[in-house]
Design a binder for these strands. Structure first.
Lengths: 351, 351
DNA sequence: CTTTAGCACTCGCGGAATATGAGTGCTAAA
DNA sequence: TTTAGCACTCATATTCCGCGAGTGCTAAAG
């Protein structure tokens, strides 16, 4: 079922001009674009073949052809050639990622925003722990007599804190004590294990002390829960409106709503090929109904050792795959590099 | 220029049915809705008067009337009656605000989302410090030989931390020393003052120690900058698409883009009447071009003593002001109460 | 067997023409 | 001051028609 070179050439021309124009491509246009030295009739024959084989579709009897999902698939797998980023673009990406305040969420957010801007499509991001996370250490800092700060550091190097108010005062030694208990009993435990340990502890600890322990541990559990959760965020959803396929609101609304509901349920990438680190899902290949007519290009990257992030681009099936994949893979690489070591991405282009 | 009761009644009927239907209201409809015992001809006369006085407009000669900006203004000022929230709604709001993890940003985000859901309009939120913020105290926690956590607490009780890596090891006494310097020299300073102090310090401090100080102080300055900044966030922008005035993408796109660009420049509320805590801006009353055809209803609330938040609803001039104001004011009150004391909002309705 | 020219046919799209009807303003009578 | 009557306006929906891009088929040519 291998296609002749000529067929491939024709298919490629059709995909690319359809990506550019969003309008069905006719035999005449193909003949001009390919530079193939054959007449339009020949091309029509080939196109009829391609249609029969399922790579092309006709919207109606008398119009040009548009690529089918299979057509796009063949294109991205074999026909598409890798695009090169311009210097400005790499510069821009590097600048964007080179944020001062190294808060994870913020960097990811920013990354999404920039990718959306340079690709002209909406972008989503997710991040989640690969395995269970545990608390690495607790620190307690006295602030006033009736409040202290609990600092929790997890084994993926995230540090969170919370101001905890206490009705009765607390002496410094008491705080030391509390800290010792926490560090000896709750380090290295998962969220569930913490819950259990806390339960067991309740009966054989003085109520006053237990209450304090519980407050800190509950905070720690929230931190772990929060870290383990898939955080789904989007950027640039309005880019959708720039593409003719979403000019009618009936098409645009469901997708936009889907994307902008930053619900916490894990969503999109039920189907992420874990082997590859770049995935393309074309139209009907998406499981989710809201995405049936759209394509998703996504890449995963590592955040330190224990977390994995996903960043993806959403667009019509007629998406500029070459452009998007080039930008996306650069992004994913930069992010991995950035989170792997605390260094700015290397090979910063000169000038 | 006071309007007769009958005129007011007619105006009110027109505003409300136009809000409900989004279509020009004719004399016949008014006659039925008001229950006024006069003929349509009389109403036509009155409507002609109201048009002349600038409260109504005709899209074209032979169509019903729609309210002008002045008409809406009169309506919200005098004619509109306060709507009551249902028990479910108050419940929902309370639940939403009663979050565990008390991170400011997150609570505000959540609030925006819920308000958007119950009002069916996009919502924006902002928060900024009223006056200058300073650091209240520094804490440093050793993690390993080559890293420590800097904890910065500001005078508006925000606590942030950062993991700082250091090339050469650091002993515990050295850390104590560092902490002492920070707490004695940088507490109570604004961002600019910190910068100055740091500059002065550079010449008369050992380079190694200075570098460490600088790293922590820079982090503190970022925290202050971040706190002082207006953080503009939106939720539920897709609700716009539900309203017929934004059915054409030409209308919807600019506004949506405007709203979804969470740029950090202070934006919307250049015109916030500081006296009142609830503001309504109708169509052309908005300074910003992107908002010329939309109305903004916003309320401000206090976050602790030193910060002020703004939460607002954006919609077409034909917005359901009664509904929105009721929900918004409840929200603003709840938020103030919530941030004022560390208590859940009172008067939680029973079942 | 492949390619090409020729040709009739299909069908979506855009513009003009037309019909519709809600709503108005005016006038004259109550 | 209110009301009934009426001619008039004009945005919207509907229909109709012609255009033209593009197709598939056939038959001849390479």
């Amino acid at each position: 079922m291998a296609l002749s070179d000529r067929k491939k050439c024709i298919l490629r021309a059709i995909v690319e001009t359809y990506i550019a124009t969003a309008e069905p491509v006719g035999s005449k246009a193909v003949s001009q674009l390919t530079g193939l030295d054959v007449s339009t009739a020949t091309i029509r024959n080939e196109m009829a073949d391609l249609t029969e084989q399922g790579y092309l579709e006709q919207p109606h009897t008398s119009a040009g052809r548009i690529p089918s999902a299979a057509g796009y698939r063949l294109y991205v797998n074999e026909l598409m050639d890798r695009q090169q980023l311009t210097l400005q673009e790499t510069q821009r990406i590097n600048d964007a990622l080179n944020l001062k305040m190294g808060e994870l969420d913020r960097v990811i957010d920013r990354a999404g925003k920039v990718l959306s801007q340079i690709s002209d499509y909406p972008v989503f991001t997710m991040a989640a722990a690969k395995e269970r996370i545990t608390v690495k250490r607790f620190d307690l800092l006295m602030v006033e007599e009736n409040a202290f700060i609990a600092v929790v550091m997890t084994d993926n190097s995230v540090v969170k804190n919370k101001l905890i108010r206490i009705p009765d005062g607390l002496s410094d030694p008491q705080l030391q004590m509390l800290s010792a208990v926490l560090n000896s009993s709750f380090v290295g435990l998962s969220q569930e294990e913490m819950e259990e340990t806390l339960d067991k502890m309740e009966t054989r600890t003085a109520p006053g002390a237990f209450e304090l322990i519980a407050m800190v541990v509950e905070f720690a559990m929230e931190v772990l829960a929060d870290q383990g959760q898939q955080k789904f965020r989007t950027a640039g959803i309005t880019h959708l409106l720039e593409h003719p396929e979403y000019r009618s609101l009936d098409k645009a609304k469901p997708l936009m709503t889907y994307l902008s509901e930053e619900s916490d349920v894990p969503r999109l990438p039920a189907t992420l090929d874990t082997g590859k680190n770049m995935n393309i899902l074309i139209g009907p290949e998406n499981v989710n109904d809201a995405l049936k007519d759209t394509s998703v290009v996504m890449a995963s990257y590592d955040i330190g050792d224990n977390m994995r992030g996903i960043i993806g681009v959403v667009g019509p099936t007629r998406m500029d795959y070459a452009k998007v994949t080039a930008r996306l893979s650069y992004f994913a690489d930069s992010l991995t590099r950035m989170f792997g070591k605390e260094l700015p991405p290397p090979e910063k282009p000169e000038e």
